[in-house]
């Protein structure tokens, strides 16, 4: 890899811009896409690799090329700078997520409690609108306070976030669904909410709950059956 290719690749990653690295396996010649114009079949393979986040093998004029996608990290937005968040944030970083914590309560969302983490102190609807969750974003609400959680869930459910989870008991969630229904959300949208949040591993402590949440986020990301939930009876009743 030449210093030029390495620098361009690093710059794209620093700017959180998707880029594919293409390598001709016979001699190691390399190209970057979309930075460089490429022959149709290679550009197509690069587009597919970035879209599916999966490496591709392509061939052009009898030569084998390896097409290596470099997408920006998945994002995790944590609403609520609570005790569970303090356990969840470093775990999620280890798994590879770029993490943002949203909480207008400045006493909770402090650099002391979340060293090195992007903290947003706006009201949760404004913060979520600015963060604009996309299909590579997971959203978890942990405040336990409808004034903070509901506006965040409202934005999350209108987005393509691949995971939306909300802390709270079944009873709390049934009331939440009633409020979200009033706010105009349909059954399909509300069925996207993973609540009570996390895989059922009988978690008790904050780190255990964080682990169950992160495991469910990964399951959703990977399409594992564990991430699929039946719509609870309460939800059906509330809807």
């Amino acid at each position: 890899m030449t210093p030029e290719v390495l620098a361009a690749l690093q710059a794209a990653r620093a700017a959180k811009r998707p880029v594919a690295l293409l390598t001709r396996l016979s001699d190691g010649a390399q190209r970057l896409w979309p930075d460089m114009d490429l022959p149709g079949p290679l550009a197509e393979a690069a587009r597919t690799a970035l879209r599916d986040d999966a490496a591709q093998n392509a061939s052009l004029e009898g030569e084998a090329w390896f097409v290596h996608p470099h997408n920006p990290p998945l994002r995790l937005i944590v609403v609520g700078a609570v005790h569970i968040a303090q356990a969840l944030v470093p775990m999620a970083q280890t798994v590879g997520f770029a993490v943002t914590v949203v909480d207008p309560r400045r006493a909770w969302a402090t650099a002391d409690r979340f060293p090195g983490i992007t903290l947003i102190h706006e009201w949760t609807d404004d913060a979520m609108a600015a963060l604009a969750p996309d299909s590579r974003t997971a959203v978890v609400t942990l405040t336990h306070d409808p004034k903070l959680d509901d506006p965040a869930l409202d934005v999350a459910l209108k987005s393509e976030a691949f995971y939306v989870g909300a802390l709270g008991s079944r009873r709390t969630h049934a009331k939440r669904l009633a409020r979200l229904t009033e706010a105009g959300h349909g059954e399909a949208a509300m069925a996207r909410i993973h609540a009570p949040v996390g895989l059922n591993i009988e978690a008790v402590t904050a780190p255990e709950i964080a682990l169950s949440i992160l495991a469910e986020v990964v399951a959703a990301r990977r399409g594992a059956a564990l991430a699929t939930r039946a719509v609870p009876a309460q939800a059906a009743a509330a809807a």
Binding site: M1, L6, L9, Q10, R13, T23, L25, D52, D53, A54, A55, N57, F66, H68, P69, H70, N71, P73, L74, Q93, T94, V95, G96, R221
Partner: peptide, 30 residues
């Protein structure tokens, strides 16, 4: 995908070694 499984940025690590004056090779599963 390697995007999420490689939480560690191996490329950045390798680039760091190189910048520090080391000779570095990179192996990639293709």
């Amino acid at each position: 995908d390697a995007g999420m499984s490689d939480a560690e940025d191996i490329l950045a690590t390798a680039a760091g070694w190189r910048a520090a004056g080391e000779t570095v090779a990179l192996a990639t599963v293709v």
